[in-house]
Each structure stands twice: as C-alpha cells, then as structure tokens.
Nucleic acid binder design. Structure first.
Lengths: 349, 349
DNA sequence: GTGAAAGCGCTAACAA
DNA sequence: TTGTTAGCGCTTTCAC
C-alpha cells in the first residue's frame, strides 16, 4: 500500500572505512579528524570532512568504547522512584544538564520502590556499560553494591542513603526537616499531630518518622501510635487513611505528611471532610500550586535540583579520578509557611 | 586519606572468554547459554551458569550489537520538551514501561523548544545507535529527518507533528480541544476571551490558536488582536502578560491558556489581581491540584500516558517490520469542568 | 552438541 | 603527517 521510495531500500549506514575510501586516506586519519586529534594537515582534514558530509557519516560511539583505553561509553544510568514524579523530574533535569555538557547521555529508569525492579534496572545499566550510576534505592543493603565496587564503577545514591558506610550519597536532611515541620505545628499549639508516611523499610520514611518523634519528644508530647499511619504509597491511600483518622473518636488537630503524593492525598481528605481550614497540615516536599490553594500549603521544601546537580558532580569527579573517601552530602530543606501549617487547634481538644 | 581496600585495585570485568575458560567450554557455547539458544546439554549449561555466577559475569550488549545480524542495541531515544515537565514525565513513564517489557532501555533528553538542542540530541542518539526514536520537535521541518529515513530508523513524533507528510505521529487533538475549551467560555456568555499561548512557530501553539479562532468564528465573535498574547514560554511570562491584560482599558472577561505552565502563570495573575472568582479560565492540559483550587480549574485535559504508550507501540511495530503507511494518531482530549471555566461575565461589559 | 575462525566499527600501538 | 595491523567482546558461519 506504500507509495514512492522503495521501502526497505535504505542507504546502508556509512562506516569510517567508507569515509576513508571516499577521502582517499586511511581510517586512522579519519579517526584523527573526527576526534579532533592533532597531526593532520588542514587540507587532509577538509577532505575528510567533505566525505563525512557526503555520506552523512555518524561516529559509532559504542564501537569506539569497545577499544578505547578508558573503555568509557559516555553514558550514565539514572534510577528514580518514577520518572513521572515531579521530585524525580527535577533531579533528572539537573543530572541531564550536567551530563549533556560533557557529551554524556542518560538512561533513566523507574523502580517504584521495588527492590526487584531496582536490581533489574541496575543490571540493564551494567549490560550497557554505563560509566556511572545515580541511584535511588528501595533497599538498605542493595545486593548489587559489592559488584559495583569490585568493578570500580562510580555510584552516587540520591534521596535515599543505604546503610552501607562507604558510598557516596546526596539527600535531603530528612530527619531535621521532619522535626522542623512537626515542631512548627507544635509551636502553633498542636498536641494531637498525625503522621502520614510511607513504608518504614524505606529509609526516608524511617528518618522522617524519627524527626517527627524528635519534635514530639522535644515538646514533651507523648506519642499516640493511633496517630501514626505508615505504609502509605500514593495519594489515594493517604486520603483514605486521613479520612479514617478524621472521623475517629479523637481526631488529630494537625497532620504532618511525609511525602508529596501523601500531601496531595491529605489535601483531598481534608477538603472532603470540610476540615481544610480547621485541621493544620505541613507536608514534606513541595507540591505544585501549593501557594494558590486556600489555605496555602505549608511545606518543608526539598531542593531536588540541587540533589541532582551535586550527585552528577560527584559521579563526574569520581570519573575524573577523585579518590577521596565517600561523602554523604546533606542538602538543606526549607520551611515555607503558606497558611495550612499555621492553623491553630480548637480552644479545647 | 582512604582506609581499607586498595583503591584502584578492582577486579577486571569478566568477559565471555573468562567464563568459557572457567567452565571449560568454548566461547560460542557460553554465548548459546547466555542467550538461551538451543543445542546445549543441561549439564554444560549448568557449568556455564556456575562460571557466570562465580565471575559475576555481565553480558556486554554493546559489543554484541556490533556483530549481531539485526544490529540492534536494545535502546531507544526519547526527546521531550523537558524531563522536568509533568506532561513529559507521563509520556516518559509510558514509553519506559513498554520498552522495559521488551528489554529495551531509554535515553531521555530535553530540548527546551530549541531546534539546535533538538538536532544535537538526535545526533547524540544516532551516535549511540538507538534502535528507534520518539521525538518532540521544535521545528516544522526537522533537518535531520531525511537522514533518519535513509537509515530506515523508526521515528515517531509525539505532541508536535512536523509538516512532513510521511511520518508517524501521536498527538492530542489540539485544534478541536482548543475550540472546545474556548466554546465552553462562549457558552457561558463570554465575548472578550483572551488567548495566552506559546511561540507561534511551534505547531501546537498554532493549532490551539486556530481552535480558539474557530470557536470565536462559530459564535460570530470578532477577533480582538489585543486579547491574543503569543510567545509565552513559562509561568512567569504568562503571569506578567495576563497581569497587563487585566489592568488594561478593556480587560478580558475570560482567559483560554494554551499550555500547563501558562495556566499556572494565569492562575497567579488572577489571584494577584483578585479576579480568580470574576474572570473565567480554561486551560489546555491538566495541572496538578487543579481540582483543589477555589475555584477548581476547568481544563481541556490531554492524555500523555496514552500518547507515550501509542508512540512506543508504533516504534516497536516498525521495528518488527510493519511497513504500512505513516499514521497520524490523534489522542482525544477531554473537557473537565471544575468551576473556573463556568464563571459568567459581569452583567454589562 | 560443540568449537574455531572471521569480522562488526572503532582506537591503540607502532611503523613508515 | 600518515597508514597498517591488531584486537576490544561479542555473534556469525561453518566445520566437526
């Protein structure tokens, strides 16, 4: 049914050999010209470039890396929770910008907080010979880590720090941030503060819970286990969980939600219960349009752009031979007050 | 300053040759086992797998693709406006899921609506021998396109359709969607409807403008050029532009914003001017938390997940040899009424 | 059922 | 300044 231009009659991809033949030089000379190496006369270079244009020649980086001394593929592997999450998107963009400036391309994958998917993704990266890895992990002790170390492959963990000691990491100050967010609620008079968070096998959830507990302890407020809901993964879960809490016998007067999707769920639950203006809310991680809601959503904002940038810098430093001991970079968070976190509790609770 | 474990003393990466030697077989047998080819005794296979585990062997897909008959690298290139934009994130995730199911990894890049960056990104993909491309373009006639066709490389454009006729595309129904959004405002009594949109050299901006004009024409409303603002790129631009319109002599009573970031800017401008409840707004493309704002934001929602999925399906169909004529897949949009689009104009305007 | 040899496109090493 | 040869890790071809 196709008209015009014989279908599978593509011009076969040109190789260096073709270019060399057309330019009347040896392949090594072509290689020199393409890779901008010295010791080629301008005249020769010109003839090569003409042949390159003539044939639409594109260097095959893969083939080159096979033989190149450093074995580099000019490729990076980036693993995030989901490329669909705004937090991951910001990290990804920062990594991409730094990598692209060095002629390095980025493989991006999602792991949905599943250690199995995580291992699979790392395996896929390794089989493609990435030069370095920027990873988010769902596990405290990733089983592939010793292999990466044996290979001498640069790895930087972002967002979540594995429990291993000798690994580069870049993450938010989860515990202090959660403590600050919770303390903010305490400072506004709350004593019944709910915590909505993720599965506790994720280090971020554990750290943020500890921060929450720190703030309560600091204020001498006893912990009410019934106000702590863990294992939340998406906005729907979170909305349902908070809905139940709000209709319970002794509902919380304030909520600390430990993650962007959970915050969104909490906002829905509060709205559905008509409590947006009477129950306080502080979220960890900023969400889009938080400033335009009524009330504005008070958050402990992370800086994903900086997390991505510092992780990429670290990977490239390792690739350039920096051998200093592993660093655990902590990116500060910032409390942004917009209204929801400054709601006071009812007179008597 | 480093302690323990001699730094650069990595175990060299194992190759098939090492595995073959350890298992006491030839390399071809290792290849057969690894790639699950027939004609290997279970006993031999077992010995090979043991050697593989022993050495932590990882197949080198790059090296393989160099020699493989089909030359496939099991790699895809995805180019979007920015990996940081939620619309792109959703497309990316859909593409990733379909690719991962086939053992294909995805390179993702951002082009910021810059034809130069677009060409660079495509070049980078080609040099890495991707099997196929899913591209967003900033140009009506991408100069690299004929090259891709010569190579017989599968390409599918998403979101933006180049003017070339014989190319696979997957995009929203931009014109009809914009017309529906504008007509919705007309139906609520508006006659002074502003259009906020992107640079008109982007086909999406042109199409959405045409849709806007269609709706006005349909209603017999004359076009007021002073109500049409083009060349908007981010939320800040858009907010400033709408701010100016609102404080002009004859301000619009309604706004159609043609893109997610512009909608966010428009929301800010309306809020800052105290006109959120008096000026109507319909946005093209949904935004997070749009349902929780007051009023809720009425939008013409796109379906980026489906756009990504259909594009990926198409690329893989091409890779599997489907030779039918190029298809222009149009993904329907959906008007979601939430309040902002149902605001009526003041009694006399 | 198995393995030896050739060669994919490139860069390294060396010779001219 | 330039070209030739070998070889990166793998798959293909073909012989056993």
């Amino acid at each position: 049914m196709t008209t015009m231009s014989t279908p599978a009659a593509q011009r076969p991809r040109a190789t260096m050999k073709h270019v060399a033949a057309l330019a009347g030089v040896g392949v090594k000379t072509v290689s020199r010209v393409i890779n901008d190496e010295p010791n080629v006369t301008p005249a020769t270079a010109e003839r090569v470039w003409n042949a390159v244009r003539e044939l639409d020649y594109q260097l095959d980086l893969q083939a080159g890396s096979l033989r190149r001394a450093d074995g580099r593929t000019r490729t990076l592997g980036l693993l995030v929770g989901s490329v669909d999450n705004p937090f991951a998107g910001a990290i990804h963009r920062a990594v991409e910008d730094i990598a692209a400036a060095r002629g390095v391309a980025v493989f991006a994958s999602s792991m949905d907080d599943d250690a199995g998917r995580e291992s699979e993704a790392v395996r896929a990266f390794l089989q493609r010979r990435v030069d370095g890895l920027i990873l988010t992990t769902a596990s405290d002790h990733p089983e592939y880590l010793s292999l990466l170390r044996d290979r001498g492959l640069p790895v930087v963990y972002v967002d979540r720090e594995p429990m291993e000691s000798d690994v580069d990491t870049v993450a938010s100050d989860n515990r202090a941030g959660a403590a600050a967010g919770t303390a903010h609620l305490v400072a506004h008079g709350h004593r019944r503060i709910a915590l909505l968070t993720d599965r506790l096998d994720l280090v971020t959830a554990r750290e943020r819970r500890l921060g929450y507990l720190d703030a309560l302890a600091q204020a001498g407020i006893p912990v009410s286990e019934e106000l702590i809901v863990t294992g939340l993964h998406d906005a729907k879960d979170a909305a349902a969980a908070l809905g139940r809490l709000l209709s319970s016998h002794e509902p919380p007067t304030a909520v600390f939600s430990a993650q962007n999707l959970i915050t969104i769920g909490a906002l829905h639950a509060l709205r559905d219960a008509g409590r947006s203006h009477s129950v306080a809310l502080v979220g960890f991680d900023d969400v889009a349009l938080a400033d335009l809601l009524d009330p504005g959503v008070t958050v402990v904002a992370q800086d994903p752009q900086q997390i991505g940038a510092r992780a990429a810098d670290r990977v490239f430093a390792r690739l350039e031979g920096v051998e200093d001991s592993p660093s655990r970079i902590v990116v500060p968070v910032r409390l942004i007050t917009r209204g929801s976190g400054e709601i006071e509790p009812p007179e008597r609770s």
